[in-house]
Every structure is written in C-alpha cells, then in structure tokens.
C-alpha cells in the first residue's frame, strides 16, 4: 500500500512535469482587455506615460543577473521596450528568451539628468567591481519602460 502510494506520487509528479507547457503566468493576473502596439508607445511615449497597458511581443532579452526585466520586441523592426519588474517580485528565467509574451504594466517615461546618470553609473560600477567612464554620458536621457505587474509567457 505504502509502496503503491509512493509510486503514484512519483508518477503524478513526472506526468505533471511532462505535460507542463502552454502558458505560464508571472506576477499579477492580466486585466487590460485591449492590446496596445509597442510601436505606438515608442512613437508617442508621453501620450501613454502613466497609463496601464497590455502589450505583446517576443522576449528578445532577459536580465541575466536577477531576472528583473525582459525586453519585448516591437511589432515594427529595430524597436523593443523594456518591461521592468521590482526585484524579487517577479523573476523571469533566462530561458524565456525567444518566447512570446503578453505583459501588463504602467508606461513610465523618465528624464534622467547628466548628474543622475553619473551617480547611477558609479553605483552600478561599484556594485559590479568595474570602472565607470563619465565621458560616456553625453547629455540628459529619456528612459521609456513599462513598470511591469504581470505577464503571460508561452512556454515550449
């Protein structure tokens, strides 16, 4: 009886693993019905700033250290948008690269001054034990990203 139960448990675990696939959810459930084109957001970031959007696209890059962001390819060539989540709240595995995703979050447009770029560059360099060259900062920068809350990723 005990042995049968153990065999059954192992079989259930393996079967579940074998048939796992389809879609995997990360973070909160998606609530926005309409999908916004990534190219529309990139074309007019200010129009979407602070708005909740649902976007779809292939995952073309994943944060290698903490899995705290993915880059979603746009519907237009040469464009992608960063979907950033709070560290540890959602962790995107590295092997999601290349999978299709639907993601929801708030569009954020931030203007970063030269001083802020130097400060954060130095901090990052310190954390990674590397050097930071201030001359690489050419001027104020605008950062467009989606502050992510939830995503659904096609798996396998």
């Amino acid at each position: 009886m005990k042995r049968s139960l153990l065999v059954l448990l192992v079989a259930v675990l393996f079967t579940t693993a074998a048939f796992a696939g389809g879609k995997k959810n990360y973070g909160k459930e998606l609530t926005v019905k309409e999908t916004t084109k990534i190219s529309d957001i990139i074309a007019a970031p200010e129009k979407f700033n602070g708005k909740r959007v649902k976007v779809a696209g292939p995952i073309v890059d994943v944060c290698k250290t903490r899995g705290c962001w993915v880059k979603l390819g746009s519907d237009k060539e040469f464009e992608a948008i960063r979907f950033k989540v709070e560290d540890g709240v959602i962790v995107f595995p590295l092997d999601l690269k290349g999978q299709n995703a639907v993601a929801e979050g708030i569009v954020s447009v931030k203007k970063i001054s030269v001083e802020e770029q130097i400060k954060s560059g130095k901090k990052m360099a310190e954390e990674h034990g590397t050097a930071f060259d201030e001359s690489t900062v050419k001027g104020p920068k605008t950062i467009l990203q989606i502050d992510g809350e939830g995503a659904q990723v096609e798996t396998k």
């Binding site: 073309v60 060539e77 040469f78």
Partner: peptide
C-alpha cells in the same frame, strides 16, 4: 525559428 528579431 520560434522568433526572429532585428534590434538594429
């Protein structure tokens, strides 16, 4: 390929 992308 599962996906094809041109970053630039």
């Amino acid at each position: 390929p599962k996906n094809f992308f041109r970053p630039d």
